[in-house]
């Protein structure tokens, strides 16, 4: 009887140790999964930022065109101002949400003078990804190009 009881307790002890190692291994595995998911989340946010930047750079609402021909990496300052005014209206702000989502779009001129236009602003939370793309800023009134960059801040 005693031997059988000892055997039973031996079996139970093995099981306890086994489950202890199992739980330890599982918690280690799930921690790895969590960090992997966080990396994937960051990657997706960066991908979204690139998409929004790509779309902004090629939008007919902002880009320079001459006789119907688009000039790459160029923004027309009059269009930038008009588009910023348009997006200040509620209807357009809602309609352009699928394009820009939660982000802030700013056109900054750095030379010869420093100016900036906030085209779209819909922040969310503190975490964000920032992309800056050099552009030419064209003024049709003076027929001159200025240097600047498009700043796209996408919120996670």
């Amino acid at each position: 009887m005693r031997r059988a009881q000892i055997k039973m307790f031996e079996t139970l002890a093995v099981l306890v140790v086994f489950f202890f190692f199992l739980i330890f291994g599982a918690s280690f595995y799930f921690r790895l999964q969590e960090s992997s998911l966080e990396r994937e989340f960051d990657r997706n946010t960066q991908l979204r930022a690139v998409q929004i930047a790509q779309k902004s750079i090629t939008m007919p609402e902002l880009e320079c065109s001459f006789a119907g021909v688009q000039r790459e990496n160029c923004m027309d300052v009059l269009k930038v101002q008009a588009f910023a005014e348009l997006l200040a209206t509620e209807e357009a702000f809602i309609d352009y949400f699928p394009v820009f989502q939660y982000s802030t779009l700013t056109v900054r001129q750095v030379y010869p003078s420093q100016l900036e236009w906030v085209v779209y602003n819909r922040p969310r939370g503190e975490q964000s990804t920032l992309l800056q793309i050099p552009v030419l800023i064209y003024d049709p009134n003076t027929n001159r190009h200025q240097f600047g960059y498009l700043e796209v801040r996408v919120y996670a």
């Binding site: 007919p60 609402e61 269009k79 008009a82 348009l86 357009a92 309609d95 049709p140």
Partner: peptide
């Protein structure tokens, strides 16, 4: 929307 921007311009 684009024509509105062009009009304003």
């Amino acid at each position: 929307y684009v024509s509105h921007v062009i009009e304003q311009r």
